[in-house]
């Protein structure tokens, strides 16, 4: 196999270049994330957003729009940037059709992530209104993670997860893995029924 490889390289490169530069929609078929539909019993907690405002988790979810939730932190490498770039892209794509998705990021490093840190983070990712980042008491953050069956005792062992709440019945689409922009868009539109 290895011996045949040099001959294949130009061809492989051509195909990969095609994929990279044209964003072939067929890619979405090769799903590399895990999708399940779940029901969660969430804790009654109050979190603090990037503007320092206290907001209850229940009121964040009390909307007739889908709500997307992820867990990230301000100084994260590897996974959070990808999740957040996914949020930025989703906002941009939906903005084109006049939609403003409700996006929620919850920190898993509440000691470090003050409203100021979170505000800077959102600025860095060119977040538009509709994307809020929350911190809070460590115990409350733990309770939220547990409520979503996403508890990790330490931020360094986290994983990529997007959760989309259906406004119809309060069920959640749980998406585990790194998603392309088209995939996240597709899942979002499916939940929104549009």
């Amino acid at each position: 196999m290895k011996k045949q490889f040099p001959a294949l390289i130009p061809f492989l490169l051509l195909l990969l270049m095609t994929w990279v530069l044209t964003a072939v929609p067929a890619r979405a078929e090769s799903t590399r994330y895990k999708r399940t539909v779940e029901k969660y019993k969430l804790p009654d907690v109050v979190l603090i957003n990037q503007n320092g405002k206290k907001v209850s988790l229940a009121s964040m979810l009390n909307t007739d729009q889908p709500v997307v939730v992820d867990f990230i932190y301000g100084t994260c490498t590897t996974i959070c940037p990808v999740l957040s770039a996914g949020y930025t892209n989703l906002q941009n794509r939906l903005a084109a059709s006049g939609q403003m998705p409700r996006l929620i990021s919850i920190t898993i490093d509440p000691e470090n992530d003050s409203p100021n840190v979170m505000k800077e983070y959102l600025k860095r990712y060119r977040a538009k209104p509709g994307w809020d980042f929350y911190t809070g008491r460590r115990a409350d953050i733990d309770a939220v993670m547990k409520g979503f069956n996403a508890y990790i005792p330490d931020k360094m062992s986290h994983y990529p997860l997007n959760l989309i709440r259906s406004p119809k019945d309060g069920s959640w689409v749980r998406l585990f893995g790194i998603m392309s922009s088209s995939e996240l868009m597709k899942e979002y539109l499916q939940v929104s029924g549009k």
């Binding site: 990279v20 590897t78 060119r126 392309s180």
Partner: peptide, 30 residues
Amino acid sequence: YIRGDIEVDSSAFSCSSCHLRAGLGSFEGG
């Protein structure tokens, strides 16, 4: 670009975000 179609501005996160300042890599989130 990530996964083909997620456009990323590297001033949000750069090479050193993951490979770190010394360039010797990192381990996070598996």
